[in-house]
Design a protein around this nucleic acid. Sequence first.
DNA 1: GCTCTTGTTGCAATCGCGTGCAGGCGCAGG
DNA 2: CCTGCGCCTGCACGCGATTGCAACAAGAGC
Lengths: 334, 334
Amino acid sequence: MSEKVFVSAQEVADRAGVSRSAVSRTFTPGASVSAQTRRRVLEAAEALGYHVNELARGLMRNESGIVCLIVSDVATPYRSALLREVTLLLQNSGKVAMLINTDRSDGSVDHALRQAIRYRADASIILSGMPDKSIVQLCLRNGQRLVLINRDDEQPGPLRINLDDDEAGGRVATAFVRAGCRTLAFANSEVGTPSLMARERGFVAAAAALGMEVSVERHGWTGYEAGKVLAQRMLTRTERPDAVFCATDLLACGFMDAARHQFSISVPGQLCIAGFDDIEQAAWSSYDLTTFAQPISAIAARAVEWLSHPQPENSEQSIRLHAELVWRGSIRGG
Amino acid sequence: MSEKVFVSAQEVADRAGVSRSAVSRTFTPGASVSAQTRRRVLEAAEALGYHVNELARGLMRNESGIVCLIVSDVATPYRSALLREVTLLLQNSGKVAMLINTDRSDGSVDHALRQAIRYRADASIILSGMPDKSIVQLCLRNGQRLVLINRDDEQPGPLRINLDDDEAGGRVATAFVRAGCRTLAFANSEVGTPSLMARERGFVAAAAALGMEVSVERHGWTGYEAGKVLAQRMLTRTERPDAVFCATDLLACGFMDAARHQFSISVPGQLCIAGFDDIEQAAWSSYDLTTFAQPISAIAARAVEWLSHPQPENSEQSIRLHAELVWRGSIRGG
DNA sequence: GCTCTTGTTGCAATCGCGTGCAGGCGCAGG
DNA sequence: CCTGCGCCTGCACGCGATTGCAACAAGAGC
């Protein structure tokens, strides 16, 4: 192991025949350096392969440039799409993303936030789980910004970005009715995230307003397999639903596959299905799923924007975005 | 803005009535501290909300604990699954993942590696693109470990993890022949990654050994849409293939959907299809795709293991893993 | 009682960098 | 020629931690 350590600003300074401060200023935007000095420093830096040490810089500036992304279910289509968008925007605004996966063990969101603090992250974006109040306080007290996405929470301080999940239910209910459906159902998972529950409540309420009842079933996680199980439960009942709103596109895909391939039910002929998220697979022609689009780029943009600009002290800390209904073939009569 | 900065070790030391060194040793595993001192330090730290500053620690130790993940197409099923696995393993071994997305602009792998150097990452894992030789040299010279996954490259230094892509072609060719297929085809993308090309070459060679020719078509990126386009091209030919090996599961899904829904061709009745990657969707009953499984956990495990243990100087720098054939319903007669 | 060993602890140097402050230089104005 | 001004530049300190070294205390062995 050669163990040749990294080149330091001092070595660059020596080679360029200037002081170390000159080197520092050359790499600090807005500092005062003459053109000639800058040129000589840059030459020396290039020759030596010098790169600013962001660790040391962060130490001085008290600002690391790191933003923590706290995520579970990274391999899920919706989450990974959001992740892609957020990382790209962060990079564009000169930040760098630190990814913390909270898949194993719950309460690990707190652990993740501690990690963020140890690395003096400028901010954390939470795409999963709910942090403990005390940790949130700790983050805020240390000047760390916090963004909660789709985690409805009341405590002030963090920016909260949510969708109009409840309204979506209303729109899909009228669509079902217009398609002539009479027996409505809602397929949910057991995880009980606020946004999932809001979709359920909104749908049930809207159906009630139209004078219909909704049979609700909850099972498992928000994935494809749970959708299949839910279909097996709901499609073997005496009063079989002819319209199902699934809390998630993945659930909807599983539900639809079970309906078609296990029960030979035609979709949308005998059964209308709607989902939520508008994942890539929803557009695949095997599913052609009518669903609500997560405004992924808007979510990412608002989050990153809020992190970048020092927001006014008393700005609104809660953003509610709109989930557009994407009409496809899984509901009769677009 | 309160701007109450982070608590430092000095403040903890003052409160606990010990020296700063004692605090440092308390948080350094394996250092020599008496039980009493440790207890008092921990109490003070808890009360003040102290967290080690990894930036400063990294500065001293010359070891940041950061591992850079350089990825493109994060939102793709295979990539995101690999990402999940790698982040989990890294966290288990006390490292933290820094995610760099190279989706926009090519040559940005070099940019990403520079970023990794600036943050003094202990290592980088490259899941996309090929870094420039000079950058690789720069990384290695600074003691930064490098892992290239599915990027066949000759230069020594980095650990290279690859699959037996070429062999896979042989196994699927015999499967096609056994299913009675006579007109073989290979659907590839234009991106020309080494592993994609190896799959193509292996298949063509194996078919030749069996006395058959393969019509090859390449188009677009490795996604679903490209698969559809390829199907439109290949299924409108006078001599229509009755077996297609798609370089990627996503391509296969698009190909299958186009075959069934646009050309009303039955799969596997009139057309056998095989893919590669074994993404989650391959198992969905609409596709039920026979494919080769990427040994994701093995890949991640080998990569992280190699990073953690200081490997012997002259260890083998290249690992070749096996892609298991997963039999499903898209080829006749399993 | 003396010495040696073992285990803790504090001092101070160090890591690589940012930045306030003061001094040097060149130039215009009087 | 002197003064004042503005632009660069270097010095020196500080950021928050780790760690070698030496001092020190306690206990064991003679």
